[in-house]
Design a binder for these strands. Structure first.
Lengths: 185, 185
DNA sequence: TTCGAATATATCGGTCCGATATATTTTGAC
DNA sequence: GTCAAAATATATCGGACCGATATATTCGAA
């Protein structure tokens, strides 16, 4: 889904400003399967306004930049529904710099490998704790709760794998002292 | 990692053409944590050649476009090592159109929800089978095998969750006949 | 009191990606 | 045996996307 469509999705939960949409992508309920920075969100919101899919109301605030609150129009609802039924969704995209580094673990310093894995283990533990004690789950739609559960399940599997194989990764590191020659076959 | 760096990574396993690099991203050992289409790979390869990080040798073939084979230089090896140790790797990116659709399951047609989930379950089953019987695992470095295992573990967790909650998703669908009003609070 | 984080919008340059163009060989189905 | 489809192989273009940056104020913590 492009940024325009994911913005429509956030706005389907209630009116929001560009800033609030970004929070939904970064920390909110959309954070584990969608994203978008300001450089994508603001242009997308302008295009959506031009196409009549959202309305924009400026809420003037005395001491801050005036907040522009966006809201779906009937056309916006139609477009969102249409996008969600348009095609069987394509394969998920999963990109990981950590896995790229770990792939070449054999050629690297054991201490460095240990450090990147331990950092990630800590990160996953915190993330999962925050997701689980998430009391804001009440009142959500069933789909939202299930998708949240999907996120937890996948993070948990990643964490478990890292914990279980941490030592094997570290042991692999530093065993190949001549990688450039080895790779040259 | 940008496309230039991931290309260096593929070339670290042996010389390759642009076409072969793409296969490594699409089906090969890099497929579950990196990617890049021709539109990214060819320009990246040109830049790497300009910077002296790879060399390009044209292998003329009689009846096909001549194959340009790229190979890492010493500078290329240095750059790759440097990139992998430059910083603690950032959070993985996970993007999913399926989860976006499922998030709004309550508002959608049960048959459609069943179809998208069943399609994905089939996809994961095939993918996992292909990954597990992967006899090409012999002779790989330890890091490569472990990263492969990580991919299997995460795909398995995703598959298990979908199988277990498929009926709950379908049951959620179609229960909300008035989503636009409901969303308006 | 000062420094960083949060609130809030916006742009710009560079990168990335899907679609498309081109051309031949191999594979497989009927 | 023939024909279509898939694989081999490189390349570009326009539009979308993203990180960095600019601007300005308030709030809380050290």
């Amino acid at each position: 889904m492009d940024t325009k469509t994911t913005c429509l999705g956030v706005l389907a939960l209630g009116e929001a400003s560009g800033y609030e949409i970004r929070k939904a992508f970064e920390e909110g309920p959309f954070s584990h399967f969608a994203d978008g920075g300001f450089g994508s969100i603001y242009p997308a919101l302008n295009k959506l306004t031009d196409e009549g899919l959202v309305t924009c109301t400026a809420h003037y605030q005395e001491k801050r930049p005036s907040k522009k609150v966006y809201r779906l129009t009937e056309g916006g609802w139609d477009r969102l529904e249409q996008e969600m039924r348009a095609r069987i969704p394509g394969e998920d995209k999963y990109r990981s710099d950590l896995l790229f580094i770990l792939f070449f673990a054999d050629w690297q310093d054991p201490a460095w490998i240990a450090r990147v894995i331990d950092t990630r283990i800590d990160f996953y533990r915190e993330k999962l704790e925050a997701m689980k004690d998430c009391s804001t789950l009440d009142g959500l739609m069933v789909g939202q709760r299930l998708v949240h559960g999907f996120g937890c399940a996948v993070y948990q599997a990643a964490l478990d794998y890292l914990v279980e194989h941490r030592d094997a990764f570290v042991a692999a590191a530093g065993n190949c002292h001549d990688c450039r020659q080895t790779a040259a076959e």
